[in-house]
Design a protein around this nucleic acid. Structure first.
Lengths: 285, 285
DNA sequence: ATATTTAAGAAAATATTTTTCATATTCATA
DNA sequence: TATGAATATGAAAAATATTTTCTTAAATAT
């Protein structure tokens, strides 16, 4: 099942009654949904145009056309890698390997399909302009934050990540106007991460979120929202693919950043690489 | 090139002057074209909305939205270029996104292709049998190690990762026979990681390596060798894909481990998930 | 039981797309 | 070269589609 449909299914429970009905219709007839106009969609799902419009906004799309475009793109993807596989007891090693490969590849391409390039562009602009960048996240998302920090530091950007969530807030509280705070959370509901982001926002920092698709507190609070698609519910087995998808987005951000200031950053990257190498050599081995 | 773009190029010669100009714009900026409204498209291509509308009908689409939908769907299909893409200065955001997607997907499937299932099986056996598991790695590979540690701890396995490489050796020196030491290093040459692995080996631990493909000191020293493929290119820009590939292998190991002892581990996973949730709830939000 | 909040559709306001229509341009022919 | 027919094109009108506002109904809290 597609990342967007999966996201709809996951958040269906939190929706209003009519939106649930609409969600149901979309889940059952995704192809019709992508092709019909708002009136048709409203009629067929037994709702109203207003509800359809709100439904799309609530899912964090820019509107119906945006929803259509992105779902359409996802549905178009070749059915070779199409269905996410679940992993259960006593699977053969071979089937496990295949399932994981499929899930990872799928979540990377789903994430790419629904990526909002304008939001990416904005994010890159903000990151470039920032004097300082703070990263927030815990557990699996903390690892993604740490990864991003490493990359940023390597090109000489002052980026901070504290594994301790109190320190995350402490750090947020010293941000200044124009700095950037990046909140990473699969669910988009992690309390600690949300708090740190709010604090950063109060300080006047530009806030950026990287969460799963759909509506959630963290992305709602953020100025710039990025989404990583993933499949599974509830983060139990799920954070494997979601983490890969998040790292994928981090790589895109980072590469775009480097690409924009190629002449500044690439020598930096090269230098940090060489310095580490040299330091290690001198230690005598 | 996509079928629709190809068709446009082929019939471009027979078009009216303004439609040719529009066709040119679409050929040069297909992604902008699918996203913009008719007014934007008319403006950017230096034509009028009437021309845009007619253009679509002339190409036998039902209208602009139909054209958008179908071109969008075509563009969405991942181009299956088999070669890794390099990222250079001033790339368009879109080409960056495509290149990264391609590289990541490619490195995941390459890694899967060359994975030695017997080695994986041995690794899983050793990990299951271990009283304690030590993980070694620095920088990007340290993140992979940390990720693996988190996963193992979640199913109740005593796994250690120290970001400090002296502590890695310290930890290694207290391993015992039958414990497992996992060394993660893209190059396979990282001094600190190598030292920790050697130390673990001396203590009688089963040693496991996760490195790039080919011969390198760390994998030579290890009892069980796993390889993650990636771009060659010396680790500077390459470590994006290599890290994804390494995490992919980690996921395979972890899933295989869980799958073998499903009834023990899955409740553990579930419990650790619920405990975190409960603890967070109690904090009152 | 009453106030307050929330949900949802009708209708109004916007925005988008298509069609019509008037004009400009090209091309063939005398 | 002049003339008329055919075609191309954009402005504006008409038709559609989408979003927002406003009102009422329903749910929830006080």
């Amino acid at each position: 099942m597609s990342g967007i449909l999966q996201a709809i299914r996951e958040s269906q429970g939190q929706m209003n009654r009519k939106e649930q009905e609409l969600a149901q219709y979309v889940l059952e007839h995704p192809h019709e949904a992508v092709q019909s106009s708002i009136t048709e969609l409203a009629d067929r799902s037994g709702t109203s145009t207003a509800t359809v419009s709100r439904f799309c906004r609530n899912l964090m799309f820019k509107g119906l056309s945006d929803f259509r475009m992105k779902l359409g793109a996802e549905l178009a993807v070749t059915p070779t890698h199409s269905t996410y596989q679940d992993i259960v007891a006593g699977n053969s090693l071979h089937s496990i390997v295949q399932a994981i490969e499929m899930n990872h590849i799928r979540s990377i391409s789903d994430t790419t399909r629904q990526l909002d390039l304008q939001a990416v562009q904005q994010a890159v602009g903000a990151l470039r302009a920032a004097k300082r960048i703070d990263l927030y996240g815990v557990a699996t998302s903390g690892i993604v934050a740490l990864d991003f920090q490493q990359k940023l530091v390597r090109i000489g950007i002052m980026a901070h990540y504290w594994p301790d969530s109190h320190m995350q807030i402490t750090s947020a509280s010293s941000l200044e106007e124009g700095d950037v705070a990046v909140a990473i959370s699969y669910s988009g509901d992690t309390v600690e991460t949300y708090d740190a982001l709010l604090c950063a926002k109060e300080r006047g920092a530009v806030t950026l979120s990287l969460t799963k698709f759909g509506s959630n507190r963290i992305s709602q609070a953020a100025d710039i929202r990025l989404f990583a698609s993933s499949l599974e519910e509830g983060m139990r087995r799920g954070d494997m693919a979601s983490r890969i998808a998040q790292l994928h987005v981090v790589d895109i951000l980072f590469t775009a950043l480097v690409s924009e200031d190629f002449d500044d950053y690439v020598p930096q990257l090269e230098q940090s690489f060489q310095q580490v190498k040299k330091y290690r050599k001198e230690k005598g081995r």
